[in-house]
């Protein structure tokens, strides 16, 4: 009975489709970002995407596409600043984070304040997910997964030991750039579901939870996937019945799973 009710609404179905796609992709990128101590890149790119969304809203183009363009450009800029080592890596992130937030605020004030639509982009909502969004997300997801499979071994080796990877002939600069471009795409495609402010949680939480189990890389990725998909499904269903913001519920579920895992591991090690 419960689920027939849920699926009567086509927007719930769209939300679930988009949510599961995002849940699949986020930990695949997250594992490399977390292990390379790049977690903050996701946060930075999500703020950049807000500026992209504002541009899209202003000029009347699908905001997800302008957000994608903005994050792709910014990711290349961040990587360039990081590799030329003219400034500290974290400062490069700070420049892009606050700079793009400032741009977003200015653009939004030009558009005379926050529209409801933009609030949804900030916090995520399955109600606003359109058919077009689902298609855009699905296409981006296929590209991200295909590239991740194609360059999986190079990404793994660079993440574990960049120098040894370089000596063995792996084009490290290319792979690093690829990773940050894929991060930008993942951030953009996650916006409609979890919202700009919570994307980095989606990318980081399942991975750091899976890492608590102290398994090998493949097993860790599988655990992160399971945690991510369960959290997104629970979050979307709960947000529907309780009429809450989907992004917030999803991330709270992730926080609960993470805390339970920590307590469980502590309990195990005290035995």
């Amino acid at each position: 009975m419960l689920f027939t009710n849920l699926f009567q609404y086509s927007f719930v179905l769209r939300g679930l489709e988009a949510g599961v796609i995002v849940a699949l992709i986020a930990p695949l990128i997250g594992i490399f970002l977390v292990l390379r101590r790049y977690s903050l890149i996701a946060d930075t790119l999500s703020h950049v995407s807000l500026a992209g969304l504002a541009i899209g809203s202003l000029i009347g183009i699908n905001p997800v596409l302008t957000a994608l363009g903005a994050t792709l450009l910014a990711s290349l800029g961040i990587e360039r600043l990081r590799t030329t080592k003219k400034i500290y890596g974290e400062s490069a992130l700070a420049i892009f984070l606050s700079g793009s937030l400032a741009l977003a605020v200015v653009l939004l004030s030009m558009a005379h304040g926050f529209s409801t639509n933009l609030l949804n982009y900030l916090f995520g909502s399955i109600v606003t997910v359109t058919n077009g969004d689902v298609i855009t997300i699905a296409i981006l997801a296929i590209i991200v997964i295909a590239l991740l499979i194609a360059f999986y071994k190079e990404l793994v080796y660079i993440t574990f030991d960049e120098e040894a990877a370089r000596v063995s002939g792996i084009p490290t600069r290319f792979i690093n750039t690829l990773l940050i471009l894929l991060s930008a795409m993942t951030v953009s495609l996650s916006i409609p579901i979890v919202g700009v402010l919570l994307i980095s949680a989606l990318i980081v939480f399942p991975v750091i939870t899976a890492l608590q189990f102290k398994k090998g890389l493949k097993t860790t990725i599988i655990y992160a996937e399971i945690i991510s998909i369960i959290s997104v499904l629970i979050g979307i269903v709960a947000s529907f019945y309780l009429n809450l913001a989907a992004g917030g519920v999803i991330v709270l579920v992730m926080v609960i799973i993470f805390s339970m895992t920590l307590l469980f591991q502590k309990f195990l090690s005290s035995l």
Binding site: Y157, T159, A164, A165, G216
Partner: peptide, 21 residues
């Protein structure tokens, strides 16, 4: 060069040697 918390098994590390080749 080595992150002590990296989640990799002995086998996964050895296999990385093949990745460049």
């Amino acid at each position: 060069n080595f992150d002590g918390h990296f989640p990799a098994t002995v086998y996964e590390v050895a296999l990385m040697g093949r990745y460049g080749r």
